[in-house]
Design a protein around this nucleic acid. Structure first.
Lengths: 194, 194
DNA sequence: GTCTATACTAGGATAGAC
DNA sequence: GTCTATCCTAGTATAGAC
């Protein structure tokens, strides 16, 4: 494969991260070798180390980037009635989970492979995201529009339920994206008594 | 560590599986070496191969055993009203998820590391378990005791929600097991309109 | 920026002694 | 049933040429 091809740093960097994200998600961080990632991109192993200090940094970068994108993408609208805000969150979380399935999967499966510093940073970002949902639930209770016995527990339960859509939903199957949204919105509204 | 100690097959076999289950769950199948497992048990590497054909068979055995235990432990009572059956399932699933957290975690995380044959077998068992919940939901709808738009989707959503308890619940914290059961039963009943 | 070559470590699995 | 010793492969990471 003598694919010597000169410099193209702007393209190789993202390609490496795309390949790593896909391979890590599919086989697990520990099961993927730097050689595999290089082969997927079409470069030699040594080249990877021009873009990342080591394998651990590559993983940490992927998770940090994912969580930051997630937080930046979510735009709450506090002026809406709480049940409508909740519907928007449900749709947002389902769409993100399906459209960035690899990143979502990595962000809760490969935490254990982070160094303590990286681990603390990523779980902090995740906590921020959970709080975005919890704020909606708190507002719903305050407005008398929801019945929730424990907002923290309910937050964790709902996020697990929504993220779980990646375990079974396949595009092109029985349900389209709109039907999916509608069904999950109904389940969530029922769970919180909205 | 010259721990030569003669034969004791009856104890070593289970010890190997306990160690493997714990290590696989904590670090991931690919990240755990046979040497680590041996060290945890207190034997030499070669000894492991008197109990398992290879690392893959060790994983497959753990998952099969877990799913079979799960299916054998669940005893439905079709004579109860559907909402009461559902409550029993919720308690059962939460208790199992917390009491056998390593097995539960492995059974949905390490499927990807199974050979195709083993994979098909384990997912078949898992499907049986999902159907146990779905039967309750179907009965609830038939009896007019639940409002469910899509029983399959609801089954998957509820199982994800319940299993997610392992992500955040810690014994000795704010909530005891009874409170946990009560909160999740309320969420589930709300979701299915019971 | 990328490649080739290589140092060094660790992995899964097996053979044969006790 | 267990241990010791070993084979062979594959891993991460680095050095130096182009």
């Amino acid at each position: 494969m003598g694919r010597t091809q000169g410099s193209r740093a702007e393209v190789t960097g993202p390609l490496i991260r795309d390949a790593a994200r896909r391979l890590f998600a599919r086989h697990g961080y520990a099961a993927v070798s730097m050689r595999q990632i290089a082969a997927e991109v079409g470069v030699q192993v040594g080249t990877l180390y021009a873009y990342t200090a080591d394998k651990q940094a590559l993983l940490a970068d992927l998770l940090r980037e994912h969580m930051q994108d997630l937080l930046a993408s979510w735009q709450d609208d506090p002026d809406l009635p709480p049940p409508a805000r909740l519907d928007r969150f449900v749709r947002f979380h389902i769409d993100t989970s399906l459209d960035h399935a690899d990143g979502v999967f990595l962000s809760y499966m490969e935490l254990r492979n982070l160094t303590p510093d990286n681990h603390a940073e990523i779980t902090g970002l995740r906590r921020d995201y959970e709080n975005a949902l919890q704020h909606i639930l708190d507002a719903g209770v305050a407005a008398g529009a929801m019945r929730i016995a424990d907002a923290r527990l309910t937050t964790m339960a709902l996020i697990a339920m929504l993220t779980g859509v990646t375990n079974w939903y396949r595009a092109g199957g029985r349900l389209d994206r709109d039907a999916l949204h509608a069904h999950y919105c109904a389940l969530v509204r029922g769970a919180v008594g909205a």
